[in-house]
Design a protein around this nucleic acid. Structure first.
Lengths: 192, 192
DNA sequence: CGTCTATTTGAATGTACTCAAAAGCGGTGG
DNA sequence: CCACCGCTTTTGAGTACATTCAAATAGACG
């Protein structure tokens, strides 16, 4: 049950058996049904979750109700609104299960306990955020510097499993185009 | 000399006099001339710098040589390629002084020493990255969901001092439009 | 099988880009 | 002091990429 998450955190730092056992004792398994929300805008995010199975998206709505997908998250990824979680402020995000999804979650108390007992996790979490930042920098670059067609090509190359699991509507929103235009891009690429 | 930076780090956690004194002892002041580079793509970033005076931009070049500005940084902001710095990997970024700029910098050794002697800084740095991530999430949202005109309006409202210090060429690149089109946006907004 | 939703297709439109040229502006030297 | 140079910004015409709206088609699910 904890193999996946233990593999994940040991990518950043080697923890010993006791440390991992303590870490695991703090995790709470939870299941979300497809289409249910883990978080809605205006709520405080009280979890950092590791996905053992399933698929989740994090999105925003603007004033006119237009959706912007910030992240897709699948098995072996973490999901949270880190800022809301850490500062216990209201989130702007919606986090929604796109499939039935199993998570292991930390709440603010258990995370604090973990950091107190095993301070090396502080570094682990920092490196995770750093990785996240790096991904966002890349995405900003690609959306500024590349055409929609190039962004889509990059996306299916980098995340080949996502298009099979997620509707084009959501992928279009992630790429920053309309679903209609994504459909035209796909038609064009399929012809080649 | 250290007031600015001490104010900055104590926004996240209250350090005592000795801790701050030790922190300050690790900082190295350095000055960059206008137009000089602090970092070029392909190099490893060996600094985390706090700007006491001046203005800096972090940008990327794509294959065709098109520039994308990721960050402008002015007084009381940090500047670095955090990922390159922490993992000691080659950077994709260029970091350039837009004015004569004074910095206080940490190198990897001094940062490590700091974290070892004053572990609370680990949290401080994590919160700084988190803030950074939050800014990037916002920017991605605005570039996906808003028109260039709205992005420019937001930008001058949020960072009113930057347009006075930075060329429109660079601002256009930050906003993800051409300089010509930014000029047209400005003409339109001025008319109103 | 029928209903509901997702995807595709097409025509008209709009936002932003390219390229070229003109205007503005700051610095330098005569 | 002003004339000239180089660089930045503006303006304009034509074009391309992406959107909107509407309708048709395909797929998914009870």
């Amino acid at each position: 049950m904890f193999d996946q998450i233990n593999n994940n955190v040991t990518r950043y730092h080697t923890f010993n058996k006791e440390e991992l056992a303590f870490f695991n004792s703090l995790l709470k398994p939870i299941r979300y049904k497809k289409k249910s929300h883990l978080l809605q805008a205006g709520e405080v995010c009280n979890f950092e979750g590791f996905i053992t199975k399933g698929c989740i998206m994090t999105y925003l709505l603007n004033e006119e109700g237009k959706e912007t997908v910030l992240y897709f998250s699948v098995e072996n990824w973490w999901v949270s609104d880190i800022c809301s979680f850490n500062e216990q402020t209201k989130s702007d995000f919606y986090i929604q299960a796109l499939e039935d999804t199993d998570l292991l979650i930390l709440n603010p108390q258990s995370k604090e306990e973990l950091l107190f007992k095993v301070p090396a996790f502080e570094r682990t979490f920092r490196l995770m955020i750093q990785k996240n930042l790096s991904v966002m920098q890349n995405r900003l670059h690609s959306i500024i510097a590349k055409s929609a067609e190039a962004r889509y090509a990059d996306f299916i190359k980098r995340y080949p499993s996502i298009p099979q699991r997620v509707s084009q509507h959501h992928i279009a929103s992630y790429l920053g185009v309309t679903p209609e235009f994504l459909s035209k891009i796909r038609a064009k690429l399929a012809k080649q």
